[in-house]
Design a protein around this nucleic acid. Structure first.
Length: 306
DNA sequence: TTCCAGGGTAAGC
DNA sequence: GCTTACCATGGA
């Protein structure tokens, strides 16, 4: 370690050097890191010269696509929680992706999406961070969501140890931290009319009215209803949070993009109402509907037609 | 300038 | 049950 361990009291090191990093390998075949981290399910990763950097569960991480899997860098820490099992869980490297993709329905557009993006995976994100981020996502483009979430972390999140060369990094703010802020303080992060919604959500969790740990154990319909009690959380945001943060693999968020591709490829371009689309996807896409949705979403965003 | 963005809500048909 | 105006903000 370079600085920080001066004198008797050891102070946690915030800015570290490259020498203070630990390197790991995550063995996994055909992981599409770029597609996974840029597919609009998370807003906290930055591409830094061919690699990805971000903060997961309060820890800074650098990731790179290797040959037999993923290369990982973390900040060396003396504590017992060494290893990167927590990261493998986040990235779902333990999952048999081919088996999942094999169970997709035989749709031309879905096969096209899998053909191009095979290796794209869902992530297991922190439920609170995920729910909060998607409350901030409504009527915003992905770069804007990244900006708002970034500002929120920068202003109200704890700074975490990271290489000095890569700039300051912050954890996502805790429920308690957000709950203690004012609407005006949140609005300084450019979240506009979403500020009262995020605040109400944090306070609802803090008061115990909303128990995220309990939501995880509910069935999908019950969980949706529970999340939709939060002001600013409707069907789409609830489904995003449930799919990306709460482990509900049948959740199928229908946003403007997915609605567009559904109408075009499954309803011959007819003006099918949104509620009918939602009913359709629950019937049609089966057990891994959430995965199918993510492939469709990512694929159509890379098609310049439509 | 005008339009739209990984929407939700409430009012009105 | 479905459609519409409105809610901030920034980028094309």
């Amino acid at each position: 370690m370079s600085v920080g361990a001066v004198g008797k009291t050891w102070e946690p090191l915030i800015g570290v050097e490259e020498d203070d990093l630990e390197r790991w390998d995550l063995e996994v075949a055909g992981y599409q890191l770029d597609a996974t981290l840029s597919s609009g399910q998370t807003f906290r990763w930055k591409r830094v010269g061919g690699r990805w950097e971000g903060v997961i569960y309060g820890r800074w991480v650098r990731l790179s696509q290797g040959h037999g899997g993923l290369e990982v860098w973390t900040v060396r820490s003396g504590d017992k929680t060494s290893g990167v099992d927590w990261l493998g869980r986040y990235l779902r490297v333990d999952e048999d992706l081919d088996a999942i993709l094999a169970e997709f329905p035989n749709d031309p557009i879905l096969e096209e999406a899998v053909g191009r993006w095979r290796g794209l995976r869902l992530l297991r994100q922190d439920p609170w961070e995920c729910l909060a981020s998607f409350i901030l996502s409504s009527t915003k483009r992905i770069p804007q969501i990244e900006q708002v979430v970034g500002l929120l972390c920068e202003r109200y999140g704890e700074r975490v140890p990271a290489p000095v060369s890569s700039g300051p990094w912050y954890a996502f703010p805790t429920v308690e931290r957000i709950a203690g802020l004012s609407e005006e303080q949140l609005r300084t992060c450019k979240m506009g009319f979403r500020a009262p919604n995020l605040l109400a959500c944090a306070r609802r969790i803090e008061s115990g009215e909303l128990d995220l740990g309990r939501v995880v154990r509910m069935d999908l319909e019950e969980a949706r209803i529970e999340l939709m009690k939060v002001s600013g959380v409707g069907p789409k945001i609830a489904d995003c949070a449930l799919l990306f943060g709460f482990g509900f693999e049948r959740a199928f968020p229908v946003d403007v993009w997915v609605a567009r591709v559904l109408r075009r490829y499954y309803f011959r371009g007819r003006a099918v109402p949104l509620p009918r689309l939602r009913a359709f996807v629950q019937r049609h896409f089966g057990e891994h509907a959430g995965y199918a949705q993510q492939y469709l979403f990512h694929h159509i965003r890379h098609l310049d037609s439509l």
